[in-house]
Computed example of a mutant assay.
Amino acid sequence: MSDFFSSIGKASNMLSSIMGVLNSAENGCVFTLSGANGSVEFPVSPADFEVTNPYNNETVNIYSLGDINMMGRRGLATMEFSSFFPAQDYSFAQPAEAPYTYVNTIKKMAESRQPAKISISGTDISLPVTIENFAFKEQDSTGDVYFSLSLKEYRYITPTSEQTNQTTGMKGRTAETVKEKKTVWTKAMHALDKAQKAMQKTTSIVNQGKRALGFYRAIVKSGGIPLGTVLTTTAEAVKSGGKSLYRF
């Protein structure tokens, strides 16, 4: 009896997937993932997908005020969807290659150490991404390969190089650095955010976070910086009025 209900459940899940696919096809919704090692136009559009956009707001407790909500900066969007690569001819599927041809193309994209791009027709989604997780399996003796895919937004740092990848249509990721940068210490942001702002463009991306945290700790230890202070950040230190506030 349990096997019977299990079979009914599988059939119901398959029917739901097929109906979702048919609805996607009627709406002209086509999923395409492209990268340095080729592209995949999914022959069976996922029945649904989910995009998550974090904004990194932070609750801070201020003496005499209590909790306040500090507005954060936008985080990296993530996206998840699942479907299958058909080994059989289905009326609802687009003409398809062998299932493991798709599997191998996605694996090569994930291992290329270059960003890919996800596009969904009929929506505003056209996003550079990294492939965070790719799981696949066979489950019903048809040869169809079921998969789930997790993607994360890849953010390019301006200015970009002028060289464009011919496959993805995206420019190279480079980091701009300057010899000297001036910022004004205001109360509009949290001290850690202001420390981060002072470090931007003065060193490599790898070192910016570390230096911002070190500068923030030095600020707290010294008792703070007066509002309106003009800071000068170089590759060696943060200064004010010729005096070094923090050295790297």
Score class of each variant (00 low, 15 high):
1 M>G: 09
8 I>A: 11
10 K>W: 15
11 A>I: 15
14 M>H: 13
19 M>F: 15
20 G>N: 13
23 N>S: 09
25 A>D: 10
25 A>W: 12
27 N>C: 10
28 G>R: 05
32 T>N: 14
32 T>G: 00
34 S>R: 15
36 A>W: 14
37 N>E: 12
37 N>A: 13
38 G>C: 13
38 G>R: 09
39 S>T: 04
40 V>E: 02
42 F>W: 13
42 F>K: 12
42 F>L: 14
46 P>W: 02
49 F>K: 04
50 E>N: 14
52 T>F: 02
55 Y>K: 10
56 N>F: 00
56 N>L: 00
57 N>W: 10
60 V>E: 10
62 I>Y: 14
67 D>R: 03
69 N>G: 02
70 M>G: 01
71 M>C: 10
74 R>C: 00
77 A>R: 15
78 T>F: 09
79 M>I: 04
80 E>M: 12
83 S>H: 04
87 A>E: 01
87 A>K: 04
89 D>W: 08
94 Q>Y: 05
95 P>K: 02
96 A>T: 02
102 Y>M: 12
102 Y>K: 15
103 V>G: 06
104 N>D: 08
105 T>V: 05
107 K>D: 07
108 K>Y: 05
108 K>S: 14
108 K>N: 14
111 E>S: 14
112 S>N: 11
114 Q>K: 08
114 Q>T: 03
115 P>W: 05
119 S>P: 09
119 S>W: 11
120 I>N: 08
122 G>K: 03
125 I>K: 15
128 P>M: 02
130 T>S: 09
130 T>I: 12
131 I>A: 01
133 N>A: 13
134 F>H: 01
134 F>C: 11
134 F>G: 02
136 F>G: 02
136 F>K: 04
137 K>F: 00
140 D>T: 05
141 S>Q: 15
142 T>Y: 11
146 Y>M: 10
146 Y>H: 12
147 F>R: 13
148 S>L: 08
152 K>T: 07
154 Y>F: 06
155 R>T: 08
157 I>T: 10
158 T>E: 03
158 T>Q: 02
159 P>W: 00
160 T>Q: 15
161 S>H: 00
161 S>C: 02
162 E>W: 01
163 Q>D: 05
164 T>N: 00
166 Q>T: 06
167 T>I: 03
168 T>P: 03
168 T>H: 04
169 G>T: 14
170 M>I: 02
170 M>L: 10
171 K>I: 00
174 T>I: 01
174 T>R: 01
175 A>E: 11
176 E>T: 06
184 V>W: 03
186 T>I: 12
187 K>I: 06
187 K>A: 13
189 M>V: 07
191 A>E: 01
193 D>E: 08
193 D>I: 05
193 D>Q: 05
195 A>K: 07
197 K>I: 08
200 Q>C: 02
200 Q>F: 09
201 K>A: 03
201 K>F: 02
203 T>S: 13
207 N>S: 10
211 R>G: 03
211 R>K: 09
219 I>A: 01
221 K>L: 02
225 I>L: 07
226 P>V: 14
226 P>E: 10
230 V>D: 09
233 T>M: 11
233 T>Q: 06
234 T>M: 01
234 T>P: 06
235 A>S: 15
235 A>V: 07
236 E>M: 01
238 V>I: 15
238 V>C: 12
238 V>P: 05
243 K>I: 06
244 S>F: 04
248 F>P: 01
